[in-house]
Design a protein around this nucleic acid. Structure first.
Length: 723
DNA sequence: TACTATTTAATTTTT
DNA sequence: TTAAATAGTA
């Protein structure tokens, strides 16, 4: 066997990882160190050299994109199509298992997947139905709670109410939510994972089957696994399976949605004798950029520890620009972009990164004025568009009449005289009789409703029945086309004024062509329609379609993860914005922000600009802000200041020599105020500055006092003492 | 039911 | 500032 193609062009560490013995392995892969390459070559190594059957390999990723990429790269390397190779996202694979074992999982065969938007609507409806003070309960928070519990692998009965009424109420919402989902055959994203875990855990034979089958478990972005995903992996691995996990603890930026870096540490305990390989050689950035990244991240505690290096060049210094305000910041970025483009570089090689989406606005305005084409990442994806979801809801009802989520969505869309009152009646009937809305509608229409309303409901129900009847045996795309036609959604959207309606109608047409090009997997037992619907939920499509033109890339630092660009701008590096106000309070939050900063810096290949504004308009108010503490964490020798800051020296590094007990406020001397500054007030006592805004005589600060709580004070009156 | 006024809150996102 | 959700009105 010639192993050259699999091992050539790998460095020592990579080779060590790829050829590791069939024992648990943890690969700590720094940014740009060839993580995907290692995974792909490992798969090829196992199949080609170790003679492992492709069937006994399971490869898990977090995004569909990564899964598709891994599959195609393995195929290229092995030069054969690898069917039967299970590569997919956690959700995709869990879904696959549930479709195969729906009986054991306690689901109807045609269960449907709901996305977070559907889930939120469902919770809102649930709230309206229950007799609770809905001003006290925010649907989003309930959704957050339910998903959080599911991510931890907890069912309502497992949750400790801690003897708190609010918590008890939340648990009861979770319980009712589950009942509605179960009744309608609806499964949310977290439920996919939780059920897939339970079905294996509770069915010894199934578990044995899959354990026998999957000898090797390859996991990408391991630092992003949440508790239930990790539990599922461990269960599947048993004590014979060989997990090969790749991740970077320094790039864990999704703690807020359940990801736990701690799994990296735990892995070594759960799988004793784990081989640990660190990939520290970076093939992306200059040494200067890597030094900066290393320095910043070194401020975090409890790391696995690693130092990126390159045998490439030192590279140019990192440029830091202090803007007066966000407009000035945008102007600066655009000026540099112009130069870049004028030098003949591709616009697509430049990226503007920011912490929060709201920041894109000013930058976009500037780019439009400068006539520089750009593309903003994120935003609504194809299958998330309202009109698409409307059409899908009709389709789902034809497949499963008990899908309350879809029922409520389209029962009066287009308007057919089924108003809030009628729907409310259905809801209470459904609740009282523990049945679906569809059944409730049928019962109410024949008994309780007056002629007109009953008529409307009957019309709706026979419309859905007709859709189901007339599309039996049709090809998928004909089915979709027919249902859209019968739904009269097109006429409904025609009434929308402006371009909006037209776009919607175009999108509906696009849905038909999406169905046309959809290739159902013959191995799956479900109907092509159900498969298409699942696909729509699991893979919502591209954020922005028109990527063809060469344009500058705008995105949040979160969405930049995994990408690289020769030229990168990191904007809005200000305390309060980045690190974000809501993260600075606790260490975990701050460290995660720092990792995000690390991710941002390591996106840059050659040139990195970091900008911050001294003044920024946020929520319609002008705020003063200090440069981000992360800027101060970059050693000076790697930095070139484009315009040295006038007002303030670089803070933090060593605490600025503030005169003790200097009064602040009064004649425009905002100097010395910074977020986190401890102050003393005659009446309220000691506190910490949380926020400042306004200027001159109107300048106000928000102070969190130890005993008096949080207060807004006008600087010129408050007579605060710095401490 | 549709339109308009008022209130409220305001990270990060994939599945 | 602004977007979205809610309340009130025609």
């Amino acid at each position: 066997m010639d192993v050259t193609p699999i091992l050539e062009n790998l460095n020592d560490a990579q080779r060590q990882a790829v050829t590791a013995p069939s024992e648990p392995a943890l690969i700590i892969a720094g940014a740009g160190s060839g993580k995907t390459r290692v995974l792909v070559h490992r798969a090829a190594w196992l199949i080609d050299v170790e003679g492992v059957s492709p069937q006994s390999l399971l490869a898990v990723t977090f995004t569909n994109k990564a899964a598709a990429q891994m599959r195609s790269r393995i195929e290229t390397l092995l030069n054969v199509p690898v069917q039967h190779l299970w590569i997919g996202t956690f959700h995709g694979l869990a879904h696959r298992m549930l479709r195969r074992h729906w009986r054991e999982a306690g689901l109807p065969q045609n269960f449907q997947i709901i996305d977070s938007d559907d889930q939120l609507r469902l919770i809102k409806r649930l709230l309206k139905g229950l007799e609770v003070d809905d001003s006290r309960w925010v649907p989003k928070e309930i959704q957050w709670f339910i998903n959080g519990q599911k991510d931890e692998g907890l069912r309502p009965k497992h949750i400790d109410d801690e003897n708190e009424p609010d918590r008890r109420q939340l648990i009861s919402f979770y319980q009712s939510y589950e009942e509605i989902c179960q009744r309608g055959g609806l499964v949310d994203f977290a439920e996919l994972l939780l059920r897939a875990h339970e079905v294996l855990r509770d069915n010894t034979e199934l578990l044995e089957h899959y354990r026998r089958r999957f000898q090797h478990l390859l996991v990408d972005e391991f630092q992003d696994t949440n508790a239930i995903q990790y539990a599922w992996l461990r269960l599947l691995a048993g004590d014979k399976g060989v997990p090969f996990v790749v991740g970077d603890d320094d790039q864990s930026i999704y703690r807020w949605r359940g990801a736990r870096v701690e799994h990296i540490h735990r892995f070594q305990k759960d799988f004793p004798g784990t081989h640990v390989v660190k990939l520290e050689q970076n093939y992306r950035s200059t040494q200067t950029i890597l030094n900066a990244a290393n320095a910043v991240i070194s401020n975090n505690g409890s790391r696995m520890g690693k130092n990126l290096w390159t045998d490439g060049t030192e590279g140019e210094a990192i440029k830091i620009y202090s803007a007066y305000n966000e407009r000035d910041e945008a102007d600066f970025v655009i000026g540099r972009l112009r130069d870049w483009i004028a030098q003949g570089h591709a616009r697509a090689d430049a990226a503007i990164l920011y912490r929060s989406n709201a920041q894109s606005r000013v930058l976009e305005e500037g780019l439009i004025n400068a006539r520089i084409p750009y593309r903003v990442y994120g935003g609504l994806r194809f299958f998330e568009r309202a009109e698409i979801k409307d059409a899908l809801a009709y389709l789902r009802l034809t497949s499963n009449r008990d899908d309350d989520s879809s029922f409520e969505r389209i029962v009066n869309k287009p308007t057919r005289g089924i108003g809030a009152r009628t729907v409310e009646m259905m809801r209470s009937y459904a609740r009282a009789n523990a049945c679906s809305m569809w059944r409730a509608a049928g019962a109410i229409a024949s008994d309780d409703l007056n002629g007109r309303a009953a008529n409307a409901v009957n019309t709706f129900m026979s419309l859905v029945e007709r859709m189901a009847r007339e599309t039996v045996g049709l090809e998928l795309h004909d089915k979709v086309d027919h249902v859209i036609h019968l739904s009269t959604l097109v006429d409904f959207f025609k009434k929308d004024k402006g371009e909006k309606g037209e776009t919607r109608i175009e999108n509906l047409a696009e849905l038909v062509s999406a169905a046309k090009s959809f290739e159902p997997d013959p191995a799956e037992e479900m109907s092509p329609l159900d498969e298409f619907l699942s696909h729509a939920a699991l893979e919502a499509g591209e954020g922005q379609a028109d990527a063809w033109e060469d344009c500058v890339q705008l995105m949040t630092m979160h969405s930049a993860k995994g990408l690289e660009f020769p030229l990168v701008f990191m904007c809005g590096l200000e305390d309060g914005l980045f690190p974000h106000q809501r993260s600075v309070a606790d260490v975990n939050g701050l460290e995660e922000e720092r990792r995000l900063c690390y991710v941002g810096i390591t996106r840059a290949m050659q040139t990195l600009y970091i900008t911050h504004a001294e003044q920024r308009r946020l929520h319609g108010m002008d705020n003063f802000s200090q440069p981000s503490r992360f800027i101060a964490e970059i050693p000076n020798e790697h930095v070139e200041e484009i315009r040295p800051r006038v007002q303030v020296a670089r803070p933090m590094r060593s605490a600025p020599p503030v005169q003790r007990r200097t009064a602040i406020g009064g004649a425009g001397s905002e100097i010395g105020i910074r977020l986190g500054q401890r102050v003393h007030h005659k009446k309220f006592g000691d506190g910490v500055i949380l926020n400042c805004e306004g200027q001159g005589a109107h300048a106000r600060v928000e102070v969190n006092f130890e005993s008096a709580g949080t207060k807004w004070l006008v600087l010129s009156y408050a007579n605060l003492d710095l401490m």
